[in-house]
């Protein structure tokens, strides 16, 4: 049973990490609490639903298209809500507030338009079979999530460390004013970060919607609290940290539910969060995160 529980934990943790990747990037680089992130997650899932149900696309076509769609939305919403706030002295509070209002409007508009029902992607989009390896069961969708999470982490790290764009983004995360003075087009770099975050959120929505078979307008909202825990424990903007923190959170939650009490599952996540904040508020994996990303 322990082996299965550990696998359950890693898989759950992979979904947390997948959700948190774009969130931590947005948070770490743009330095604002952007509560609209969860909406891109829902939007990606709904886009994939339309693409697969109405246009009959397969998962390999629908996944990138939905991700790009969510990314474009992120850029648009970011531009509408946040550009004029960046210059303000109280940008942190104001952006929290404006994205709070924005996300309320977006979720409820989406619910009014599409209805509150739970939907699912067409059955058979991914094989529903599960494999049994050494007594441990795992499904195709779960393997897909695990693979996608690792792949996206690798791609993001390569982008951040190995490209000029990555350098510009890291410079911006460190010192936005200085980056501007050094000739980095910060407006364009912010838009790109929004786009990438939106794409990651959208892709996460598709994959997690596929795994749990449940797509509904508020699905992103329900992930937000776990998302906060992961990005704080992992360190803001720390991509590797998000992966480690996500998986650790998943494993701890599953072990708590499996061996102590399922009622405590959620409380443990937040107890860890509070403990980490008290002892290492810069996240478990150090500070000045984007420099090392």
């Amino acid at each position: 049973m322990l082996a299965q529980q550990l696998v359950n934990g890693v898989l759950l943790g992979a979904t947390y990490a997948l959700f948190a990747l774009g969130f931590t990037l947005m948070f770490g680089v743009l330095r604002v609490i952007n509560l609209t992130y969860g909406f891109y997650f829902s939007a990606g899932a709904f886009l994939s639903l339309a693409l697969t149900r109405q246009l009959g696309l397969g998962i390999w076509a629908a996944l990138p298209l939905a991700a790009i769609g969510a990314g474009i939305m992120a850029v648009g919403i970011d531009w509408l809500l946040l550009t004029r706030l960046r210059r303000r002295a109280t940008a942190e509070l104001d952006s929290l507030m404006v994205t709070l209002g924005g996300v309320l409007a977006l979720y409820s508009a989406m619910t009014a338009w599409l209805g509150p029902d739970i939907r699912r992607l067409p059955p058979g989009l991914v094989s529903a079979d599960s494999f049994v390896i050494a007594g441990v069961r795992i499904t195709t969708a779960q393997i897909l999530i695990l693979g996608a999470t690792l792949l996206l982490v690798a791609l993001l790290l390569a982008l951040m460390r190995g490209t000029r764009l990555g350098l510009a983004i890291r410079a911006m995360a460190e010192k936005p004013d200085a980056a501007g003075l050094m000739g980095i087009n910060t407006a364009r770099a912010s838009a790109l970060v929004s786009f990438i975050s939106g794409c990651l959120g959208g892709a996460g929505g598709v994959l997690i919607g596929l795994n749990f078979n449940a797509i509904h307008p508020y699905m992103g909202e329900t992930m937000m609290l776990r998302g906060f825990v992961v990005i704080i424990v992992g360190g803001l903007g720390d991509i590797r940290g998000a992966l480690i923190a996500g998986v650790a959170l998943g494993v701890i939650e599953v072990l708590t539910a499996g061996y102590i009490s399922s009622g405590l599952k959620e409380a443990v996540a937040f107890a860890i969060l509070v403990a980490v904040l008290w002892t290492r508020p810069q996240g478990l994996f150090g500070r000045a995160v984007m420099r090392r990303a």
Partner: peptide, 20 residues
């Protein structure tokens, strides 16, 4: 007796325990 949150999507820990 196992519980979960009404917005949860993952029940693997509880189910694995019950299965055993």
């Amino acid at each position: 007796i196992e519980s979960f949150g009404s917005k949860d999507t993952d029940f693997s820990a509880q189910l694995t325990k019950i299965k055993s």
